[in-house]
Design a protein around this nucleic acid. Structure first.
Lengths: 191, 191
DNA sequence: ACTAAAATGTGATGTACATCACGTAACTAC
DNA sequence: GTAGTTACGTGATGTACATCACATTTTAGT
């Protein structure tokens, strides 16, 4: 499917735009492709854009003391990703985003998003709902972190995203779960 | 200050409503008062409203296996609280919200919020930004959970909300930090 | 003011995880 | 091919926390 069609279908789930409105909306996006390993957002740099994933898989992560990596989010097709903290407070990035596989994204600048939200009520409606879903998901993950041990979080993750198991290396799954790669290895060899 | 003034000032930080628009907006809120210990949202019940806190302090929490309590959020004046998961997916509440102190809130039904968002573009703008701030805060807390030990999270919490230390019992602070009350006690007696 | 209940402190012990150490296997590049 | 890197497995040991048990202090109800 075409990039434009994928986005159109995605938006249509929450907002009703006329074809003209959508064409105008879409004209603000840039199609970008990245190779496995390339970086979209680097800690300390300015962040101008958010990304809508068309194909491939990215990770948004944080590195502590140059040693331990924590993954905040895997980004899969039709997901949005960026450093929203930096984006909305006009600060420098505190996280990194790079490509686990080759990737195609649509890129929207923050200035354009605000302009479009202002010009088209339904666009603002869409972004309100998108952020809302993100907020609810984030709260759920927080609760799971407080409530469940590593094994349960691991099973939860696999139930939610079975494709991850074969798509991404195990040490990245460990970094998402907040445990060491050794513990993760022991978890699934135990069963 | 009057309830109406508090809300007006709060909204004005992110959205520009005319006086008429704000009066109309405000007419959809109900002023409610609760006594310490009373419950606003109960796990398993339907959730229709979200709450804007005027005075007092609430907690949004989850109880696991009828034993352990995890606090998702303390809600203080000018904060919003509800079970957003239930509210936006039209499901039953998965968390509880009750009053740590006597409380005054403004209550807005979900149906009215959607109606107002639809009728007044700036209202939708306001709610997009509010959710956005919540999302960013939630991500930060998640990162802190993965990244920091109990002591650091405790210091972070006190730095962010010094008033909590004297306002809420220690075992609730422990429940927010995701540690046992005993561990919290040892943390601050250690220093 | 008196009593019951809730909140807090502190030692002893248990456990889920991390860390370190070292091995093997699987990709990647030239 | 071979060499270097990255992924993965597994034992030994360490540690931050939980849990249990019980004492003390503070708060709330009549």
């Amino acid at each position: 499917m075409e990039a434009k069609e994928i986005l159109k279908e995605h938006i249509a789930k929450t907002a009703s735009l006329t074809d003209e409105q959508f064409d105008y909306f879409y004209s603000h996006f840039k199609l970008l492709t990245y190779k496995k390993g390339q970086t979209l957002v680097t800690e300390g740099d300015k962040v101008d854009c958010e990304y809508f994933v068309l194909s491939g898989c990215l990770k948004a992560f944080f590195i502590n003391d140059d040693i331990k990596m924590y993954i905040l989010q895997f980004a899969m097709p039709t997901w949005w990703t960026s450093d929203y903290n930096a984006l909305y407070s006009n600060a420098r990035a505190t996280i990194n985003i790079d490509c686990i596989t080759d990737v195609e994204v649509l890129c929207l600048s923050s200035a354009d998003r605000e302009k479009l939200c202002d010009e088209i009520h339904q666009v603002e409606h869409f972004f309100r709902w998108r952020t809302n879903r993100g907020y609810v998901a984030s709260q759920k993950r927080l609760l799971s972190f407080m409530n469940n041990d590593a094994k349960k979080r691991y099973e939860e993750l696999l139930a939610l995203y079975p494709q991850l198991y074969n798509l991404v290396p195990k040490h990245l799954i460990a970094a998402y779960l907040g445990i060491s790669r050794e513990t993760l290895s022991r978890l699934y060899s135990a069963h």
